[in-house]
Design a protein around this nucleic acid. Structure first.
Lengths: 263, 263
DNA sequence: CGCATTATTGATGTCAATCAAGCGCAGTGG
DNA sequence: CCACTGCGCTTGATTGACATCAATAATGCG
């Protein structure tokens, strides 16, 4: 299998320079799935057997667009991506941030047309997996199908939590909550530790995620810094006092439905 | 099967007066599922064979609570329910409104612990379906499993649209959008027509759904009335100018992923 | 009929948006 | 090497949308 020269159709008809990836890309997926469910050795093998097409994207580049009908899923390997929708007057709402291990458009397996877009926030490495391969996998392994379903359910739980942030939390609490959530998500796939992680997104991105302006995000971050809770230097975020921070924004990680709990 | 005396455990240990429902309750579910996917005659039969336990609830009564580990799903038959979460200082965020045909806690099949609550907004008739029955059904009918998955994906799409409302739309646009969405959802199961439907929720409920105050919802509704877009009399909502209203709030029903389109 | 809930309206306050400007840094090209 | 440019961050001044507080009217339910 590995090494075979395969070409998929990419979004917008762009036929990209492509490299055939060995097992490695799927290790990231397995790590992610194991953060929300247990996998048997056989299930891991089955997942590792998925064909992938690895591709590099520049920051700002769209991966899938609103109204597209993708024939493949996209697995983030490096960098950050986000789901978003544009509305009138250049306004943008970001629905989720995606980090390595995530499959942001898993839903396209069951919902033919995209109702939002997906783009790279940083330069990003992604692996494309054809729908039919995923469907073949889930047909043979109903438990894996359930885990994929579960993943989309956890995403929905995260959407709900963001709704709480936008609807019923102050801007500072919402941002603090976001910071806690990202820490646990990254930690679950081994990309954060010691209350420290790379946060390669702009303040405008955070603003569009929480329904604020970049100006206000900036002030709130200063406030969190002044309070000694969180500092960001050179794109690296440090949480100085986890207890204090989680208390401040009433962060309860239950909604992430993680298998092994972090703290 | 039908007519057998069966008793399930209900939330909070309450052992309710119960009636055994015939096929009818599931007709509502079938109608709902057919609004987002096609069902074969055999699939309809299989669904109609699910055991249900019908129960009446008073307005305000919780159906499932945060942290519960339900062993059954809840199908709304009459009345309205909502998913919500309480946070500090009595603040509440409503995540979704549920009307007949909805299974609001379908996710509990795959996510053991609830991360939010579910309650009746009006006096409500619901049918409980044991998890093991649903699992047996989906094991025998993978396509039905996919449709259930699809339903939870559509719900997630609705969450995203609400996020747009809270984050990037004005209060009037958000409420107008909500009104359009509910019309299509109700129409899809035959509970609305001619731009008219029963809206049995309070202004405070709408406020908690959109992150506003009841006072402000009241003013916005007056504004919509003044503009000749929408009136509510005696709990019945009438959309006077669908084109105008959808234009005003930039409503695009794609995200509902309805099979047969309404207008 | 009486009480409780819900709707409505006004006055005032606050949080975050908007507008505007300057700064720092990385990349680019002469 | 340095001007130039663009982007993101930072800060101030002002405005606006919605919250809060408060009181009264209207509904609806037991």
């Amino acid at each position: 299998m590995a090494g075979r020269d395969v070409r998929f159709h990419l979004q917008g008809g762009a036929e990209a320079a492509m490299t055939w990836a060995p097992d490695h890309p799927l290790d990231m997926l397995i790590r992610k799935l194991e953060s929300i469910a247990h996998l048997s050795a056989e299930e891991r093998r089955a997942i590792a057997g998925l064909p992938t097409l690895v591709r590099l994207l520049k920051a700002g580049q769209d991966i899938v667009r609103d109204d597209d009908r993708p024939s493949q899923c996209c697995l983030v390997l490096e960098g950050w991506a986000c789901r978003y929708k544009l509305i009138s007057q250049g306004k943008r709402q970001i629905f989720s941030f995606h980090v390595p291990g995530d499959i942001p458009d898993l839903q396209s397996l069951n919902l033919k047309a995209m109702d939002h877009s997906l783009c790279a926030l940083t330069s990003t490495k992604v692996a494309f997996i054809p729908h039919h391969s995923v469907l073949a996998l889930t047909a043979r392994h109903p438990r894996i199908a359930a885990i994929f379903w579960r993943d989309t359910l956890v995403e929905a739980a995260i959407f709900r939590e963001w709704m709480v942030g936008m609807g019923r939390r102050t801007a500072s609490q919402a941002i603090a909550h976001q910071i806690c959530e990202l820490y646990l998500k990254l930690k679950a796939v081994g990309l954060a530790e010691n209350h420290l992680y790379r946060l390669p997104v702009t303040q405008s991105d955070i603003a569009d995620a929480l329904g604020l302006t970049n100006v206000h995000v900036n002030r709130v971050l200063r406030e969190l810094r002044t309070k000694g809770l969180v500092t960001i230097v050179g794109g690296t975020l440090r949480i100085h006092d986890w207890r204090e921070l989680t208390g401040f924004c009433e962060f309860d990680p239950t909604y992430l439905h993680l298998e092994r709990q972090a703290a």
